[in-house]
């Protein structure tokens, strides 16, 4: 499966890439929503982990754009953000996010959420 990490922090992208690569994903990175849009037009992405606050196109706008296009209907998206207000969680779900994680996160939290999203990681290395 191919995953896309969208976050303007290089260090967060590196950490998330390490986690997902460790459980068997091929991982791409983008620093904002616009970069991510360009990338998903070129290659199929199964899972996107999306930061909220980014320049050019924020994570919520990215999710809304993706959900408008039927070509991406199978793409699973999880917001991974410092936004912790309950209305923000509701807003992300309304926009079309499948799941939501508030930073800081652990590897286990990411894996538990992927399981909730129905993504099989049973064969993934620990």
């Amino acid at each position: 499966m191919r995953a896309l990490i969208i976050d303007d922090s290089k260090s967060i992208r590196t950490i998330l890439t390490e986690i997902l690569a460790g459980i068997g994903f091929a991982v791409e990175e983008a620093a904002n929503g616009l970069e991510a849009m360009a990338l998903i037009k070129k290659e199929k992405v199964d899972l996107a982990l999306v930061d909220w606050n980014m320049p050019d196109m924020n994570g919520c706008e990215f999710i809304q754009e993706v959900r408008k296009d039927n070509a991406y209907k199978n793409m699973r998206m999880m917001m991974v953000t410092t936004e912790t207000a309950i209305n923000k969680v509701a807003e992300a779900l309304e926009a079309g996010a499948d799941e939501y994680i508030m930073k800081p996160f652990t590897r286990e939290m990411i894996i538990e959420k992927l399981v909730l999203m129905g993504i099989s990681i049973s064969s993934a290395p620990k």
Binding site: I86, V89, A90, A92, L93, A97, E99, Y100, I101, M102, P104, F105, E108, M109, E112, K113, L116
Partner: peptide, 13 residues
């Protein structure tokens, strides 16, 4: 940290 673990976001809301 606890509500980040295994809880569907829809249930959190």
């Amino acid at each position: 940290l606890e509500v980040n673990r295994g809880l569907p976001a829809a249930f959190l809301v």
